[in-house]
Computed example of a mutant assay.
Amino acid sequence: MGGGGGGSENGEPEFQIAPMIDVLLVLLIFFMSITTSQVAKIDKEIQLPVASDAKKKEGKNLANEAIVNVRWSTAKQEALIMFQDQPFPQTEPLVDILSGNKAKNPSYRVIIRGDKNLPAIEMQKVMAVIAQSGIDDISFSALNQ
């Protein structure tokens, strides 16, 4: 009798490791291909504020979003605005970049990741820069813990 599926003489199926490795490699390639560069644009040095009513972001249309990181330097008592891993000590170039992105994509929005030690006046300045760009859809990033 021909019983397929196993190489042992007693008819018990053997565990095939090669197909499992193939499946794992396909999954690895899949997850690597869907991972966006958006993850790298999050500044790890920023300590986000805690908001007990913060809601998890719904929908992940990253093509329509930009992240502006605002880091607070306690030693220098100044804010550092970062966009696409570039510091912007002067805000005029940032206004130009955001305006261009908004012109290309009308549903473009900005997420501000401000440090929890950042004074409110500095956050207002960042919001004014974004408003000068013509962007009216702004969100703030916070933790809910």
Score class of each variant (00 low, 15 high):
Q84H: 05
K116R: 15
P49L: 02
K55Q: 15
T35N: 13
P89W: 01
I97F: 00
F15W: 10
I111G: 00
S99H: 02
S73R: 08
S139Y: 10
I111N: 03
A128F: 07
A18Y: 13
K41W: 03
L143W: 08
M82G: 04
M20W: 09
A51P: 00
D22A: 14
L94T: 05
E92A: 14
T74W: 03
K116C: 06
L62R: 07
W72C: 08
S73A: 03
V110R: 00
I67M: 04
M127C: 01
A128Q: 11
G134V: 06
A79F: 00
S133L: 04
M32F: 08
S8D: 12
K41N: 05
I111P: 01
M82C: 01
P87G: 01
E122T: 06
S107R: 04
E122R: 13
V126T: 11
V110I: 11
E45Q: 14
Q90C: 00
P106I: 06
A63T: 14
S141W: 08
K76T: 04
A79K: 10
I42A: 12
L94N: 02
A63M: 05
L24S: 13
M82Q: 10
F31I: 12
E14S: 14
G134W: 03
Y108F: 15
P93A: 03
I34G: 06
F140W: 05
D53M: 06
P106T: 10
A131K: 13
I97G: 04
L27F: 14
I112G: 03
A142D: 09
Q132H: 07
